[in-house]
Amino acid sequence: MLKQKYQFKNYNWVLIGAVLILSGMGVLFINSADSSYTSKQLVGLIFCTGVMLFLSVVNFNFVCGFNRVLYMINIVLLVLVKLVGVSVNGAQRWINLGFTRLQPSELTKIIMIIFVAVYIQEHEEDLMEWKVLLKLALLCALPLFLVVIEPNLSTTLDITFILLSVIFVGGFSMALIKKWLKIIIPVMIPLGFLFIWYIQTPNQILLHDYQVTRIMTFLEPSKYSSTSAYQQDNSVMAIGSGKLYGKGLNNNTIADVTVADTGFVSEQQTDFIFSVVGEETGFVGSVIVIALLAIIVIECLKTAYVAKNMSGRLIASGMAALIGFQSFINIGVATEFLPNTGLPLPFVSYGLTSLLSYMAGIGIVLNIGLQRHY
């Protein structure tokens, strides 16, 4: 396992640097949003950095060999959430460990990337057979079902997109995709209108009330401007008020009072951390954060390109999809471009389980890069 010989000239210092700088900036932004979370995030960052560096020198094929064990652990944790989980704001997504809370749905992201990557490698020759695809769909459906009933629809859709990206990179036939799209698109458009109509009917059973409200707020923001749209409206106001250079971190002057000081945006340390970025560091700081996220995605894709086998290529691609898609969603929500969801901004938002998941994934990507194909 640890006796693997690596050429450390291939160690991706750019990726490590981008991750550590972004994570460090995240601690500063969390401190500005709510200083009570700062110490936990800092300790978590130190621990997770150790996990990342440790996994970077552990043969990723060794980790992949435990894919079925990881899958079963993931299922057990998701079941425990329903049995003994902590409920917050109507959602039961956490397991109380005493010193912190564990959110298994965040671990599901990296575990399922590994599991699907190994599955595709094992079925590289017969992936397009319907029995193989059906088995894969069922194996993915179980954890997704356990996540969606927490309820956590946004994370379910997030994981679904990530896994579809991994399957696509794994060699899914473009001809088959085009064939399916010709059938799906004409059907989905009228179904979409039907869905919007149905969720507004009394006693509908598809979505929870708060999920319906989020969708309708996005479609009719003026109607909900004083209620559910209030948070996103204030987030946009905060970002815009930062102008070019921002008001400065932890700015408490009367002239430059921030949204963090007034509490106009709730959950600012997690879902709406980008409003802190925009307000306190302005356009320049926002561009730096987005650029660092882009660097991480690009470096993951570069690693996927030089990976020595299929599973390595798919894991690195999956991490690129995870960081890229989740960053797009989080920033899209903070800027009112997308409906309100509960997805954190990778490496920046508060959340120890999510940070552990990202760091573990990056550690595996670093090891894939050390074993690059020449």
Rank of each mutant, 00 (worst) to 15 (best):
Leu219Ser: 11
Asn330Ala: 13
Leu53Phe: 08
Pro339Ala: 09
Trp13Glu: 11
Ser56His: 06
Lys178Gln: 09
Ile296Glu: 07
Lys308Asn: 15
Leu206His: 07
Thr262Tyr: 01
Gly17Thr: 12
Ser222Trp: 00
Leu176Val: 13
Phe115Thr: 09
Ala33Thr: 05
Val76Trp: 02
Met25Gly: 14
Ser311Arg: 00
Thr100Cys: 05
Met128Phe: 06
Tyr230Glu: 08
Val306Trp: 04
Gly242Lys: 00
Val257Gln: 13
Ala141Phe: 12
Pro186His: 01
Leu343Val: 13
Val116Cys: 07
Val51Ile: 12
Thr108Met: 10
Glu124Ile: 09
Thr213Ala: 14
Gly285Trp: 00
Trp13Asn: 14
Phe325Trp: 10
Val69Ser: 10
Arg372Met: 08
Pro143Asn: 07
Ile315Thr: 04
Gln103Thr: 09
Ser226Met: 09
Gly312Met: 01
Met128Ile: 13
Ile120Val: 15
Gln211Pro: 09
Lys3Cys: 10
Tyr37Val: 03
Asn61Ile: 02
Ala117Pro: 08
Ser354Asp: 05
Val166His: 01
Tyr245Ile: 14
Gly342His: 08
Ser317Cys: 06
Ile215Arg: 04
Val132Gln: 03
Ser226Glu: 15
Asn96Trp: 00
Ile254Gly: 05
Tyr198Glu: 15
Met25Thr: 05
Ile199Arg: 05
Leu146Gly: 09
Lys5Asp: 13
Ser241Asn: 15
Leu314Trp: 00
Leu42Phe: 12
Ile110Met: 11
Leu45Lys: 01
Thr155Ala: 08
Leu181Gln: 03
Gln211Glu: 14
Gly324His: 04
Met72His: 03
Gly90Ser: 06
Met188Ser: 15
Asn309Cys: 05
Val306Asp: 02
Tyr198Leu: 14
Leu356Trp: 01
Ala91Ser: 14
Thr156Tyr: 08
Gly246Asn: 09
Leu55Cys: 09
Ile149Phe: 10
Gln326Ser: 13
Leu176Gln: 04
Leu144Gln: 04
His208Val: 12
Ser235His: 02
Thr253Gln: 11
Leu314Glu: 01
Ile189Tyr: 00
Ile30Arg: 00
Leu133Ser: 10
Thr353Asp: 09
Thr100Asn: 03
Tyr11Asn: 07
Gly44His: 01
Leu352Ala: 05
Asp34Phe: 01
Phe168Val: 03
Arg93Leu: 10
Leu293Lys: 00
Ala260Asn: 08
Ile120Ser: 06
Lys135Val: 13
Phe66Thr: 11
Leu107Asn: 04
Lys302Cys: 06
Gln204Leu: 08
Phe195Glu: 12
Gly342Met: 04
Gln41Pro: 09
Gly170Leu: 02
Thr258Gly: 08
Leu107Lys: 00
Val277Leu: 04
Asp271Lys: 00
Met112Asn: 11
Asn67Arg: 05
Gln371Gly: 13
Ile184Leu: 13
Pro202Lys: 02
Val51Phe: 05
